[in-house]
Amino acid sequence: MKTKSLLLILWTTVVFMSCSTETEPAPNPNPEPEPEPETQNLYFPPIGNDTWESVSLETLAWNADQVDPLYTFLEDNNTDAFIILKDGKIVLEQYFNGFSASQNHTWNSAAKTLTSFTAGIAQEEGFLALDDASSDYMGSGWSSLTPEQEVMITVKNHLTMTTGLDYTVSNSFCTDKECLLYKNEPNSYWYYHNAPYTLLDAIITGAVQQDFKDYFNTKIRDKIGMQGTWVKTGYLNLYFSTARSMARFGLLNLNEGTWEDAPIMTDRTYFNAMTTTSQELNSSYGYLWWLNGKNSFRIPGSEDSFPGKLIPDAPDDLVAGLGANDQKLYVVPSMGLVIVRMGDAANSSELGPTTFDNQLWTQLNALME
């Protein structure tokens, strides 16, 4: 009896192992790798000539019937220059009101994005740190604050509009120390104050021991084939260039800091911080870039926070350089888009975002549907 039981146990074990072998195949020692997500190669126009490839509306399956209404809308709203790039190639390029492709136009505050990018290169090269006091690079006594108050303001505060300097002074563009007064603790309040932004020129100059304009030209402008120049106008340092130069800078940011195969900024941490929410006070603001798709936003000239997205009809991942009189640089990574609009004010001379942004995106959505 014991022998029969032992044989039964052995037979059951063999059958079980056999079944297990049949139903549970051995793992493949060389599994197939998961496919990489498809990526669209970007086109980069050559440096040193006017060659720039285009792509047709038909190829993109965009609505050609909406081009004329878009151009009418742009012309009626005081536009001088307008460009759409798709994956780096020109889809539309149009000039109005006697303006031409070779003429320079001011970027106004859309040029803040140029300064932010330049600051990123300076910190990447070890010339400055965002958490350092700005007085480390400008010297003490640059403001009317006490020495203790002054050293609390960091480079990052200048990049994020959180210095706490008094924005109610009679001239908020004034960078004289008499105009730079204490109002709030740094990082405690967000307000679109131009003077602290303008001081970034002096911060970068002091850090790299080279004039800000020359450093920018060497590190960004000349490397990506831009043209243009910074022009001192009162307290402001304005950038003037062609619309195509603005489009080149947009393309650089669409490719996250690399021009074709040439790295212009390699610090991924800084680039991501620059183009995402930089502080909790205004979720729609990065390092001098405006951000769409957030739950609330603040705008220049106001102490209030408004619910909703900055540009409701635009893609959520849009980042933008926005300047007075409706200078627009839109970058939309999910769609491979760079869009440039230069001109006079459409319907408001406000700084930064205006109602024209959403009106324009209504037209753009009709074109691209």
Rank of each mutant, 00 (worst) to 15 (best):
K86R: 15
T113E: 02
G88E: 00
Q103A: 12
I84E: 05
Y71N: 15
A122L: 05
W52M: 01
W52N: 01
V67Y: 07
L92T: 02
E124P: 12
E124R: 10
T59D: 15
L70R: 13
W62V: 07
T72M: 12
S116M: 05
K89H: 04
V55D: 06
S56Q: 07
A101M: 08
K86F: 05
T106A: 11
I84D: 04
A111D: 00
L114Q: 08
L70E: 11
K86G: 02
V55C: 03
L114D: 00
E75L: 03
E75S: 13
G98Q: 09
E53C: 02
S109I: 06
V55S: 02
I121R: 01
V55W: 02
P69A: 12
L60V: 07
F96L: 07
Q94K: 15
N97H: 15
D68F: 08
F96K: 05
W107T: 01
K86N: 13
T113D: 02
L92Q: 10
L85D: 04
L60A: 06
A61W: 05
W62M: 06
S56N: 06
E93F: 08
T118E: 00
Q123D: 06
H105P: 00
Q123M: 11
T115L: 08
L60Q: 05
A64V: 09
N63A: 10
N63W: 06
F127K: 15
N78L: 09
N104P: 03
I90D: 07
A81L: 01
D80I: 00
L128C: 06
A110F: 12
L128R: 12
V55A: 02
N63F: 07
Q66D: 12
D76T: 10
N77E: 11
V67A: 07
S102I: 09
I121V: 02
N49A: 03
Q123R: 14
A122V: 00
E75N: 14
Q94S: 13
D76V: 00
E58Q: 13
